[in-house]
Amino acid sequence: MNKKPLKPINIRPITPEDAPLLFDLMTSEKWLAQIGDRGIKSVADARQYILDKMHPDLHRKGFVNHIVIDSETKAEIGTCSLHHRDGIDGVDIGYGILEQFEGKGYATAAAQKMVELALNTYGLNKVYAITNDENLGSCKVLEKLGFIHIGYVELPIADHPVKLYELCIA
């Protein structure tokens, strides 16, 4: 089977200076429809969200959100992360790509980076992911990487059950 190589990306921890990118991402129509409104109404709100919600995760949960960067163009194209999310018994991955970069392989590459981080840095042998039924692109990304849809889960942050995927690495 001829496997297409993943988009070359780099990641780096998110900083408060990434607030404009986060604002653009978290106020996009797709983010609001697929992930939900996190109350971000300005770049200042995005900066505060990074400081209040993202940076403390490193000390509380051991993980931090990352900025996804195209290795060739150096364009910052989205975010990716690992989470200890209430309602999931384990670590799940998350990713969000700016709409102008969708459909170019960045989400798959970012999700793969998070899987590698979970395995190689944190020594995990199982990783989860969640998405909405309507988010067919995300479902395809997860299935391409070998995740299996194992059911639905209700999360405190969602108003309806979401698809739960699992990837076991033996």
Results as ranks from 00 to 15, higher is better:
D52R: 09
P56M: 12
G94P: 01
D86A: 11
V141Q: 03
D37C: 13
K163I: 03
K30S: 12
P16W: 00
T108M: 01
N120L: 12
A44R: 13
V64H: 14
G90E: 13
E166T: 07
T131P: 01
N2F: 14
K30E: 12
P161C: 08
S42N: 10
L119F: 01
I14S: 05
G96T: 07
I97C: 10
V115R: 09
K126Q: 15
V64T: 15
P16K: 11
S81Y: 12
I77Y: 09
G94Q: 04
N135Y: 05
T79K: 03
P13H: 09
L167I: 06
C139S: 06
L25R: 00
K4R: 12
A170R: 11
Y128E: 07
G78K: 04
D52S: 08
H66N: 15
K113N: 08
P161D: 06
V43M: 10
W31R: 03
N65C: 14
F147Y: 11
K144S: 04
E166L: 11
L119Q: 09
N10R: 11
D24I: 03
C168T: 12
I88N: 01
L6W: 00
C139I: 11
D86Y: 07
D159I: 15
A33F: 07
I157L: 11
S138I: 08
I148Q: 13
Q100R: 15
R38D: 05
Y165N: 10
Q100L: 05
W31T: 07
H59P: 03
F63W: 15
H66C: 15
I69F: 10
Y165E: 04
I148A: 12
I148P: 02
D52P: 03
P56K: 11
I67G: 06
V127G: 00
V91D: 08
K113W: 05
I130G: 02
Y122F: 15
A75W: 10
R85C: 15
N10S: 13
E116A: 10
K74E: 14
T121G: 09
E72S: 14
D70Y: 01
E166H: 09
L142A: 02
G151E: 02
R60L: 13
I130K: 02
L136W: 04
E76R: 14
T131C: 05
E116Y: 04
A19W: 02
V91S: 08
I35H: 02
A129M: 10
A46R: 09
G123Q: 05
D57Q: 15
P20C: 08
D70P: 08
P156L: 08
V91R: 06
I14P: 04
I9K: 01
K104R: 14
E143A: 00
V127D: 06
K144Q: 05
D24S: 11
E29H: 01
F23A: 09
N135T: 01
D92W: 15
K113A: 13
R60Q: 14
